[in-house]
Design a binder for these strands. Structure first.
Lengths: 345, 345
DNA sequence: TTGAAAGCGCTAACAT
DNA sequence: ATGTTAGCGCTTTCAA
């Protein structure tokens, strides 16, 4: 049954009236007589008429669609952000096209162009790790399409931004370890050209300083994935005997480092306390359950979408930009209770 | 700079030629003279002309866009499927619109309608848990839009389908436990109105039968989420002393049940061996590392998209449907090594 | 080799 | 209260 969808013309022809009358009747235009309205509406209902969104968009140059460009859907944080975005979007009558770049700069360029070509009303972006050129973002702005960055923002562009306060989150996490009695805290860090990596390290430093603890370069290990931790297992073990706490840049490295230590005879949190940085629901599953700071992905998504709508619907000046900051929250579990002998009894 | 995007008309006006010539020149139509082509192309390049995808779609009634409807993006399995879909889609020039239903029937209906309204070329669906009415799927077919189901298929409709062989996967998992020496195996089951729930239970039964082990209803606990397991913790503990193995319908329940048991003094896998069913990368993180059967999400996504393209591009008959089955693979880790006294030393 | 005109589905001046 | 017409951006007959 591949018959083409019913159009307004079809209805007009069958009912013996003009297309414009049908169009008006369907949208309750005051000029149209009640009986005509009724006639048209019931018939449209019967044949299951649906307006062609393409035609509507072309005519109004408004698609009611927004684009989301993110590095990877599989990351729990990003999935959460998407949910936040979608819930606001749906509520306001917008559809979302999601593009994942897989951290690939070329793909990001292509995705953005495709969104422009499809005339989306606005775009939400979290930059790929490998993006160092920004003309494709400028291209979006030049096409008159509002753009809002979240999490992985582009500092070179003036736009709306929604970010997690990584500095503060890291400081809270490290401070928590210090409060538990830790004096020599290792940090597993992300690459320093990423804001995330830089800010979390700075927050860690800041907490150390405010407690007059020494900041030592050699206590910082550059590894931000599970695999990287295992690859640097020797370095971890070499330092293990002199440290009493670890602040990891994300949960997967936190869990991995606990496992490396446990395999080498260390007790968590008895010998070494560990705190992660929330990127998922793994924290509960860990052994022992992982203390972590939770990023407010859902809230970030909502905020980003709201900012975008502000620009799309021009309730806000074109060149008036805002930065929203969400401070992560410490979720205390077992892994950070320094000195405690934990075991599932 | 909110100037409207350059159109073919704009180019025609500036160059003093007709829109049709511009259109033809841009697509290398043989009738157009080399010099005109060159003129047009270099100018188009200079002003960064981009065809309006909306206009193109309206005219050709082909959007080069497909819709994906899934219960939840946050599930690792679905994210993986999406990656598989997208990689094939991109390669063939299709964009994807992703909709999540949050397991909500109403939302599924709305999403599907929105995709129809936007005239997508085809739709990939994994049904919500709460869907028992199928007119919205029929609606898609009646609009001449090809539809392919994956994972959570709709048995009532004849369409292409791509599924994991849950029966076989469950059988492999259970058989593995039996081979490890387990004789009394509990099953944590999903709702039986879901194929996933039914098939995995049947596979479990089948493995028991082929080893002449008794199938006992009371060894089946209906819980398919982490929370449900904790809610039924008492039932688990009541049975724990008489069982020696557990086959869980997914990894989160497997990990949860291990934790419930451990908190009550049972050793895994020494006292009770556990096998999960792969829905994510958590298996490695578990304590002890979880033996599980891995679903081939990426492959499933690829296959589904390929089938869909077959129908979109009509390289396959309209009413010719295929079912592709992917058998999961056992990934052996520690949790299933019955009798072994596991601990991070 | 190029241009004029019609039409994809819809709406909104502008008639009547 | 309803119809006619033009146009959103593009392609494609048909004509020149």
């Amino acid at each position: 049954m591949k018959s083409h969808p019913i159009t307004i013309k079809d209805i007009a022809r069958v009912l013996g009236i003009s297309p414009s009358t049908v169009s008006r009747a369907l949208k309750d235009h005051p000029d149209i007589s009640p009986k005509t309205k009724n006639l048209v509406k019931t018939f449209a209902e019967k044949v299951n008429y649906r307006p062609n969104a393409l035609a509507l968009s072309l005519r109004s140059s408004k698609t009611n669609t927004i684009g989301i460009v993110i590095p990877e859907i599989v990351h729990h944080f990003f999935s959460t952000v998407i949910s936040g975005i979608e819930d606001v979007a749906y509520g306001r009558g917008y559809n979302a096209i999601i593009c994942q770049t897989n951290e690939n700069y070329q793909r990001e360029v292509i995705d953005l162009q495709a969104l422009i070509d499809n005339r989306v009303d606005g775009i939400l972006v979290s930059m790929s790790k490998n993006t160092h050129e920004f003309t494709h973002f400028n291209n979006v702005k030049e096409n008159g399409i509002p753009i809002v960055f979240f999490d992985r923002i582009c500092e070179a562009l003036s736009t709306d931004r929604v970010i997690a306060d990584d500095f503060e989150g890291a400081r809270i996490a490290t401070r928590h370890l210090i409060n538990q009695g830790c004096k020599k805290i290792m940090h597993l860090a992300a690459p320093q050209h990423l804001l995330i990596g830089k800010n979390r390290k700075e927050g860690y430093y800041s907490a150390l300083k405010e407690s007059k603890l020494e900041c030592e370069e050699r206590l910082i290990l550059k590894c931000d994935t599970r695999e990287a931790v295992f690859a640097k297992a020797d370095d971890v073990i070499r330092l293990a005997s002199e440290i009493d706490g670890i602040f990891a840049v994300n949960d997967s490295t936190a869990i991995a480092v606990m496992q490396v230590l446990q395999r080498n005879g260390y007790k968590i949190p008895k010998d070494i306390a560990v705190v992660g940085f929330g990127d998922g629901p793994n924290a509960n599953i860990a052994y022992p359950p992982l203390t972590t700071v939770e990023q407010k992905g859902y809230d970030i998504g909502q905020a980003a979408m709201r900012l975008l709508i502000g620009h799309i619907e021009e309730t806000v000046e074109d060149d008036e930009f805002e930065t929203k900051i969400f401070t992560p929250e410490l979720v205390e579990r077992t892994s950070s209770q320094y000195g405690i002998d934990f075991t599932y009894k």
